[in-house]
Amino acid sequence: MQRVNMIMAESPGLITICLLGYLLSAECTVFLDHENANKILNRPKRYNSGKLEEFVQGNLERECMEEKCSFEEAREVFENTERTTEFWKQYVDGDQCESNPCLNGGSCKDDINSYECWCPFGFEGKNCELDVTCNIKNGRCEQFCKNSADNKVVCSCTEGYRLAENQKSCEPAVPFPCGRVSVSQTSKLTRAETVFPDVDYVNSTEAETILDNITQSTQSFNDFTRVVGGEDAKPGQFPWQVVLNGKVDAFCGGSIVNEKWIVTAAHCVETGVKITVVAGEHNIEETEHTEQKRNVIRIIPHHNYNAAINKYNHDIALLELDEPLVLNSYVTPICIADKEYTNIFLKFGSGYVSGWGRVFHKGRSALVLQYLRVPLVDRATCLRSTKFTIYNNMFCAGFHEGGRDSCQGDSGGPHVTEVEGTSFLTGIISWGEECAMKGKYGIYTKVSRYVNWIKEKTKLT
């Protein structure tokens, strides 16, 4: 034993070699072989497995989906700052455009905790909710729209109204504003409101030439003092309507412009014939205590009207009353817009006519005020429907199939267009061939041609 100890002390290297040989010859039971080890760690190889990531292109799944990435790591994937920024906006807080917040056709661009709407022409605001041009839906104005110097929408209202708090709607500024039905039992019968379409306001006024200088022999019209197929109006439903009495009662109609003036057809009036105007009328054979009678003290036909040349060209006249009318729910003026808007309103496509005229061709006159909704007829169809001249200051309205029309005794009465609950004068009943005849239409004086003249002559002093 002493000898062994001496050998170990003198030859430590020998001992180490012996131990190493023993270990190498022993069977290893701690580690699995290569094949079995792979069965336990069965993990798919990654895209760049075996390579240094710093030297390969980034992978979106590896960089940002398996674990949260930084902007720089995302930049490695896209290799483009702009594309990385677009991805980053949604990656950080989701897609803010998912709810489609942009209105009126706006395009949404996502941002971090926010979004941006790219608005089409005519709109602005956070969600493109603000109209900035009158060309689109009248700028959301209830009545009139004008573009300011910086191309912003400025709404306005006709006389007797003021802008509401929203700067879009119009509200009454006087007790009985024009064009409004205020009798409670008839307010439910107000005709369907007309909503502004998209309009090209630059070209809204037709490029028409008034044929002022045409000389033409007097034409022989049949029954051209021209509501057939209409309905009984309720008291106060058309408070701007008046009836004219002269040699015979209810020979023509008219509309209240203001307390002192009536507008009617020029062919209705004769110099030297006494005319009485009755406002607030409903049943011409009954006294309903809503009527107001006034005498006409002055007749002003349009300066281009000449019955000797043509009885229905420039067929418009103004009547001055001896005493002002007292405005109330049964006696209310009709609204008159400017030339541009009167023309736009007419193009809405349908209007209402009213009167006490004959209820059928050569038949009896109506006792109760009649009204009828009539569609506008395109000019080409209008011209083809008659052998008589249709001037540019006239328009056609009615039904091709016949059966409904204005008729004798309705002449001078109103053709009105309702705009968001307020009625505007767009025409004056003038003439036609018979009444409600198939293929024939009622012919009306186009008020847009005469609004400046009306307003100039009827100013209240």
Rank of each mutant, 00 (worst) to 15 (best):
R3A: 14
E10D: 12
S11E: 09
G13I: 14
L14P: 13
G21V: 13
L23W: 13
L23N: 02
E27V: 06
C28M: 05
C28H: 04
T29L: 14
E35L: 07
L41G: 03
N42R: 07
N42D: 08
K45F: 01
R46A: 03
Y47Q: 04
Y47F: 12
S49D: 15
G50T: 02
E53G: 00
E53N: 00
E54A: 01
E54M: 01
F55P: 01
N59E: 01
E66F: 04
E67A: 03
E76A: 01
E82L: 04
E82K: 05
K89T: 12
Q90C: 07
Y91N: 06
D95G: 12
C97S: 03
C97F: 02
E98K: 12
N100C: 08
N100T: 14
N104E: 04
G105D: 06
D111Y: 10
I112R: 14
P120T: 09
P120A: 13
F121I: 07
K126R: 13
N127A: 06
N127K: 10
C128L: 02
E129N: 07
L130T: 13
C134K: 03
N135P: 09
C145Q: 03
K146R: 13
A149G: 08
A149L: 10
N151V: 09
K152H: 10
C157Q: 00
T158P: 05
E159R: 07
G160H: 05
E165C: 04
S169V: 06
V174F: 05
P175H: 09
F176S: 05
P177Q: 01
V181Y: 07
V181K: 07
T194M: 13
T194F: 13
V195W: 11
V195R: 13
F196R: 08
P197S: 12
D200M: 06
V202Y: 12
N203P: 08
E208A: 13
I210S: 14
L211M: 12
T215F: 06
E231W: 10
G236S: 05
Q237C: 04
F238S: 04
V242R: 00
K247D: 15
C252S: 01
G254E: 00
G254Y: 01
V257S: 00
E259L: 04
I262Q: 00
A266D: 01
H267I: 02
V269H: 04
G272L: 06
V273A: 13
K274T: 10
V278F: 05
A279E: 00
G280Y: 02
E285S: 11
R294N: 02
R294S: 02
N295Q: 13
I299T: 14
P301S: 08
H303P: 10
A307G: 12
A308D: 12
A308C: 06
N310W: 04
Y312H: 09
N313C: 05
N313T: 09
L325E: 01
V326R: 09
N328T: 09
A337F: 01
A337M: 02
Y341C: 04
G351I: 01
Y352V: 07
Y352T: 08
S354W: 04
G355Q: 12
K362W: 04
L367V: 10
L367G: 12
Q370L: 03
L372C: 11
R373D: 03
V374M: 09
R379Q: 14
A380D: 14
A380C: 05
T381R: 11
L383Y: 10
S385D: 14
F395D: 01
G402R: 11
R404C: 13
D405P: 13
D405Y: 12
C407F: 09
P414M: 15
V416W: 15
T422S: 04
L425G: 00
L425Y: 00
T426A: 00
I429C: 07
I429L: 14
G432S: 15
E434P: 15
M437S: 14
K438Q: 15
K438I: 06
I443S: 03
R449A: 15
Y450D: 02
I454R: 00
E456F: 08
E456K: 10
K457P: 02
L460C: 08
